[in-house]
Design a binder for these strands. Structure first.
Lengths: 232, 232
DNA sequence: CCGTATCCGGGGGGATACTG
DNA sequence: CAGTATCCCCCCGGATACGG
């Protein structure tokens, strides 16, 4: 936030002084979601320039919201973790997200969603416990998108969660998911479902029938998926 | 928020697109607190220029958060009231305020607080039911401030709440409150109390002993006053 | 892999004055 | 009372390239 500040003793204004600058809330959301490394944060906030990301992280550190920790000496590697003050921002993030899910029109944004970000969000919330306890490879193919963006979801070790590949990892594919990005995004945000998209031919599943049949379940949804939209 | 938007389907980002622009959260807070008229809003957000206030109100109206209603024809008079979507922003405001009260350092802002804003906030939360049921006049005198800013709190009709005057209303004064602006602000935000400020000679009360003795009670505090500060 | 450095443009918004 | 109108500066932040 710029220098001629709000200058109000109201705690709402004081907090806004910190949280109101561009990208800050979105970044904190990604931190709350669990990303700690610089490049992981970048994946969660892909349209933010690294320069600005670095700047915001410094600000958050300065404000006692984030702690920057050295995790390895060579090569020098850091992680950014929320302090107690930062952790309590979860309540703020949740309140904002719940309101957004309920009241903000989604359609304009669905039009040009980001496949990389969607995969990144899906990966995080995967219910690996509901997937077969072996290596599982799911290949997402988004129509009308430059073929360049391959999207493989690779579950090797249930303990470690899934990996994301943008190039063919070479494994046999258990399930091909072919759909438009808009539908997949709508499913993840809870305003559409796998069965409905399949029945309306917006989603095509080819492969292992078990993995296919349970997709709505193992595909963890957005934390706000349960909230009904009210926007006119 | 500017045009190159976040472009994220995450509801936190979508909501931030609306709420993230400068002054918006602070303005919504004032709307939640009950102000509906343009000039009342100005008093609650004194450092915001009328041009920007007008612009933000239009944006909020466009986004379905505020409704602009004509209340009188001559002179043309409008009021701004929160829509259902706007009312539900109260949860967001509260979450932000609670976090701010708990974790944001207050001291820098206490230094140059705004007496007009403080009076405006105090007036709103006055516990008129705990004041004598007759006309009560309290004259606040802030030391080290240009004498120009007189601050009379006038309770005429308990039904209608109190009035604020910047010029001597001419009534007999029931209580003189003499203090530095910093102490009074600290009291209102709950990090100080009337008795303590009095005992430390930062607050001087002269006048009706009943009104004086019950000041800590009839002076309604900030909605966030109960939350303990944790900031280092 | 984890950032930093630099450039540069657009526009947000602060200040001030004014009007129906 | 309820806003408009105008000016103009500053700085945010987007883009790109580069270093440890």
């Amino acid at each position: 936030m710029s220098h001629p500040s709000y200058n109000q003793f109201c705690p709402v204004a004081m907090a806004s002084e910190i949280l109101g600058s561009r990208w800050t809330i979105v970044l904190v959301r990604e931190l709350c979601a669990g990303s700690t490394r610089f490049n992981d944060l970048r994946r969660g906030v892909p349209r933010m320039s690294p320069a600005l990301l670095s700047k915001r992280l410094k600000e958050l550190e300065h404000q006692g919201i984030v702690e920057r920790r050295l995790v390895r000496k060579i090569p020098e590697t850091f992680e950014y973790v929320l302090t107690p003050a930062g952790c309590e921002l979860r309540d703020v993030i949740m309140a904002i997200g719940e309101w957004g899910q309920k009241w903000v029109q989604t359609s304009p944004i669905l039009e040009n969603a980001d496949p990389g970000l969607l995969m990144w969000d899906m990966r995080r919330n995967l219910r690996v416990d509901l997937m077969p306890q072996r290596r599982v490879v799911v290949h997402f193919i988004y129509e009308n998108l430059p073929e360049a963006s391959g999207n493989w979801l690779v579950l090797t070790d249930p303990e470690k969660g899934a990996d994301l590949c943008s190039a063919d990892p070479g494994f046999d594919v258990d399930l091909f998911v072919r759909c438009d990005l808009k539908s997949m995004t709508a499913i993840w945000t809870g305003i559409d479902t796998v069965p409905r998209a399949v029945s309306e031919d917006r989603l095509l599943l080819v492969g292992d029938s078990d993995v296919s049949a349970s997709m709505q379940d193992w595909l963890g949804l957005s934390p706000f998926a349960g909230i009904e939209k009210q926007a006119s």
